[in-house]
Amino acid sequence: MSNNSKSDSDQISKVELADLYRSMLRIRRFEETVLGEFSRGYFFGTTHTYIGQEANAVGVLRNIAPEDIVVSNHRSHGHFLAYGGDMRALFAELMGKSTGVCGGRGGSQHLYWKNFYSNGVLGGTSPIGTGIALAEKFNQRDTVTITFLGDGALGEGVVYESLNMASLWSAPVLFVLENNHIAQTTPAELNLAGSIVNRFNAFGIDSEALDTSDVLVIQSSAVRAISEVRKKSSPQALILNTYRFGPHSKGDDTRQEKEILELRKTRDPISILAERLDPDQINPIEEEVDDEVKQAFQKAESDPIPN
């Protein structure tokens, strides 16, 4: 585990800190809006919110190359927005509108845009990410594929088939394992044996594990890991111990409120970064993001439904 920040925040420009803050806040406000408006019938199906985990998506995806590929999972909104996906199109997708990312056919868990793919079956995306990485390698492209998995997906056998093949064939893929310590409502200690790190190491995949909500630390490790994958053209793993503050989907959080309040106090990536910003930087960003989310929501709401 590495807890010490390798990046000295003094070295990072105010503009960059503000950008990181804005990126995380966009995800936070988007997700809060989705949860808040769900009961009013704006959205179809369900949602899996990323509240509390924003530093992972932003820290990992902020420095990827334009041609790099992201393979995401059911909890994809944060990944999608951090990748650069359009907020209005994401709202519209959840609302089943024709302007949605996939014209309303996919919904929350099934997004495709540019080099971003997500699917809602846990672990099922891991061989696909590996195959994508291999195809890029066979085509002599310098691309890194980033496959996001959660701790819940570690229960699926196909994940281990994929780790084996990724290592065997040197697929340039970075597995980002977001361990939020809870699979739907089941805490990890009731469904996960042994060590997550060792699961990767057993296949000869080098890994680093972090236990932090500090986006600067995550960013620094991600930059190093992505560069290693690109340089060596072989897989790596980044294990991010993290906490979600919201329910698995909506209204299915069986944890004590006290527990979540404590997490919000100690592990909120947005509060942690806020301490590094000048107080007068924060308000304009808050206003700007609130306005962006509001407008994106309203535009999506008035968008047409598909024929």
Partner: peptide, 25 residues
């Protein structure tokens, strides 16, 4: 021509990924 582990789901998933990026596995 790639010989594979005994991992039918994994092989087919890998092939699906390859197909998404322009190959014809």
């Amino acid at each position: 021509t790639m010989t594979t582990p005994i991992s039918e789901a994994g092989i087919f998933g890998v092939a699906t990924g390859m197909a998404l990026r322009g190959l014809r596995p």
